[in-house]
Design a protein around this nucleic acid. Structure first.
Length: 520
RNA sequence: GGCCCGUUCGUCUAGGGGUUAGGACACGUCCCUUUCACGGAUGAAACACGGGUUCGAUUCCCGUACGGGCUACCA
């Protein structure tokens, strides 16, 4: 408990404000959705704010349409920010970093660090940096990087004279601003999920804070924005853990450690087979994106969960349990229940492999909870697409029959096309096994009896079926599957007598006669 | 390579100094059922390894192994 003392202290004193801050460099991957989800749940749980900030500081990687895709994805998932790009500006607008850069917000902080002696100008060209790295590698330096040692041999405001620096600056020489990381200092920080983490500053490089195009890097930008937007908790992927010490230093040098959010580095989602971080090219057969995404960079179309027939609630339910659990054995949770049960302390440390099978199971669970009416609304357009103009009432009855074994609504047609189409072929295995003179006679007899029967309700037709079998001295079980093939063409499916009721007497009799004609 | 993080059934996980190590997915068997599915029952299946600490370690500590992440004027 002791380890969370600081955290609880924080909670009592500051309004919870969290953010999801993706870069518009491509479609929002399901790993990103999960980070957004955890932020959202935490904000809702504590009655706080959830902000969408767009971190578009890398102009070379900007992808048109990515921002809109992110917004649409969050909407579909029901993870709606209360503030930010696409969700209504709050008092901290703008929420796009490129726009904030125009306002000079980041430069101000970078200058403050320079003034304090904690950052410096560096004029090195890409070639010079490359050369440095090669030199260090050749010298077998364990960690070749721009740091307290190597910067002494580079062209920066720490090695150049004041006059030279001024001259270069006045001449508009391209330059960056780098963080001046101390040579040997223990940097200690607390992570809500991982506890205390200690890193020596010798491992941290002199990170670029402001790029030569005037844009801030992530390192500077997110800190400035988190301070200005009064972020209370910074939840992000584990891939940020190694740069967290540099971030601690920046807060410290800015004199704003008191404004630093609580850090929470979340475990990554791993590939289902083999190892490694889940990637957009995963071949598990399941989507990696919430919505269809056409990537302009590689000209590839990626299918989405939505278009694959997933319910958004099932999707986020699956996601929330990758690295978090409520502590009991509860697995199926509504969004409100997730909010109620969510806590940062119950997030795991280890990465979680994504399981496609279980993902499908979640969708099945949600499908089973929906009414025939709800599902029929989704099924009806698919029926019409196949060219069958049936009533909603018919679709509801069809849904009732075909829903049982389905994981997805888009499987309905495959499980019950015979409800709409008169079969033109029959399961040969069943015929080989079950069709003989005696059983064919049974079909002849049953057809005759049913033709004269007005009441086609399941109970009545079933009784007739059994009575006819008994009369001919055949067990009902002997002819049931054959009869199923007669009417539907296939050997499995929903209750036969309910199928007959739905397709109606006329169609049923027609199919039986058709079968007899085709199998003399 | 260096640094950081991690390691309970195949997978997601609960648990935590003394437990028959629990649940879920998937898999096997049985029951229910005209079939499939659902449901029910049941089976197989895990504390990475080695040292400590301790009366006792899966749980705490240290190593090792393995896995992951980072190592850009990308986020």
């Amino acid at each position: 408990m002791r380890k969370f003392a600081a955290y609880f202290y924080f909670m009592e004193n500051k309004r919870v404000r969290v953010r999801f801050a993706p870069s518009p460099t491509g479609g929002l991957h399901m790993g990103g959705v999960r980070v957004a989800l955890f932020n959202y749940l935490f904000a809702k749980k504590h009655g706080g704010d959830f902000i969408l900030r767009i971190e578009d500081t890398d102009q070379t990687r900007f992808v048109a349409g990515a921002e809109e895709y992110i917004i649409n994805s969050l909407k579909w998932c029901g993870i709606e920010p209360s503030e930010g790009v696409g969700f209504g500006d709050g008092k901290h607008a703008p929420y796009r970093q490129s726009e904030r850069k125009e306002l000079g917000i980041y430069k101000k902080y970078a200058d403050k660090l320079i003034e304090g002696g904690h950052a410096y100008y560096a004029f090195d060209t890409a070639e010079e940096l490359d050369e440095m790295r090669k030199r260090l590698e050749a010298a077998k330096v364990a960690a070749p990087q721009y740091n307290s040692v190597s910067r002494q041999n580079m062209r920066n405001s720490l090695t150049l004279s004041e006059d030279e620096v001024k001259k270069l600056l006045d001449a508009g020489t391209p330059h960056v601003i780098r963080l001046k990381v101390p040579r040997n200092e223990e940097i200690r920080f607390h992570d809500v999920i991982r506890g205390w983490v200690v890193v020596n500053s010798a491992q941290v490089d002199d990170k670029v804070l402001l790029k030569s195009d005037g844009m801030p890097t992530y390192h500077l930008a997110h800190i400035v924005d988190d301070i200005e937007m009064e972020i209370s908790h910074a939840m992000r992927g584990e891939e940020w853990l190694p740069s967290a010490p540099a971030h601690i230093l920046i807060y410290r040098y800015l004199g704003m450690e008191d404004k630093m959010p609580q850090l929470a580095h979340m475990p990554l989602i791993l590939k289902p087979d083999g190892n490694g971080k889940l990637s957009k090219r995963d071949k598990s057969g399941l989507p990696m994106f919430p919505l269809n995404w056409s990537d302009p960079r590689d000209n590839t179309d990626y299918v989405g969960y939505k278009e694959s027939g997933f319910f958004p609630d099932a999707f986020i339910n699956m996601l929330v349990l990758l690295g978090w659990n409520p502590g009991d054995n509860k697995e199926i949770m509504s969004k409100d229940e997730m909010i109620e049960l969510f806590s940062l302390e119950r997030i795991n440390k280890a990465g979680a492999k994504f399981d496609p099978e279980k993902t499908k199971w979640f969708n099945q669970q949600y499908l089973r909870k929906k009414s025939d009416e709800e599902l029929a609304k989704l099924f009806l357009p698919m029926i019409k697409e196949k060219g069958f103009d049936v009533s909603e009432a018919f679709a509801i009855k069809a849904t009732k029959l075909v829903r049982e074994k389905a994981h997805f609504v888009n499987e309905f047609w495959g499980f019950g096309s015979f409800l709409f189409i008169t079969p033109d072929s029959y399961d040969q295995d069943v015929l080989t096994k079950r069709l003989n003179e005696q059983t064919r006679n049974f079909v002849v007899e049953l057809t005759a009896v049913l033709t004269d029967q007005a009441d086609f309700s399941p109970a009545v037709t079933e009784a007739t079926f059994k009575a006819t079998a008994e009369k001919l001295g055949i067990g009902a079980g002997q002819v049931m599957q054959l009869f199923r093939v007669v009417v539907t063409g296939v050997g499995g499916g929903p209750n036969m007598f309910e199928i007959m009721e739905l397709i109606g007497k006329e169609e049923s009799i027609k199919r039986m006669n058709l079968f007899l004609e085709r199998n003399k």
